[in-house]
Design a binder for these strands. Structure first.
Lengths: 69, 69
DNA sequence: CCTTTACGTAAAGGTTACTTTACATTTCAT
DNA sequence: ATGAAATGTAAAGTAACCTTTACGTAAAGG
């Protein structure tokens, strides 16, 4: 499972630390997420997507090629 | 966090057992989910939504009143 | 009554998300 | 070179997801 967190974070001019604070998670969580090290909880995925004003399926990519048909 | 799993499952004429098998999780997981006992992983939330051909935000309701627009 | 099917609870255990702390590297500025 | 800001890794601990097993209830049918 891939995600666009790093890309979106940079486009919004946020550091990992800032994003972590806004999401109320640790910086490690952001790092691990950006590195694709795990499958977040739905609530965290939702908070991230909401922060970037996007749908969950547009931030997290589950399958190659298509996810939002 | 609320969700429409029970409603959707019944509309698709599935038992908890059948849904659990299709999702490759235990029946307990379905029961707990339907009862709102926890916050699933993103991947499970995705699989559930996909099974009902819906967006995650249309199956899981995060805030009262509005979630999609 | 007895069995089967579907739904529900409870509790113990494994796995993994997430935290916390510590330390290393790179980049930017002085 | 020195210092601060940003990113990264590693490791140990806590919290939560999810499984497994066991048991209880209610409805449908023989």
């Amino acid at each position: 499972m891939q995600n666009r967190i790093k890309d979106l974070r940079q486009k919004h001019d946020l550091t990992q630390d800032e994003l972590a604070e806004r999401l109320e998670v640790s910086r490690q969580t952001i790092i691990s997420l950006e590195k694709g090290r795990y499958n977040p909880s739905l609530i965290l995925a939702y908070k991230i997507s909401k922060m970037f004003e996007m749908q969950i399926e547009d931030v997290f990519i589950f399958e190659e090629g298509n996810n939002n048909g």
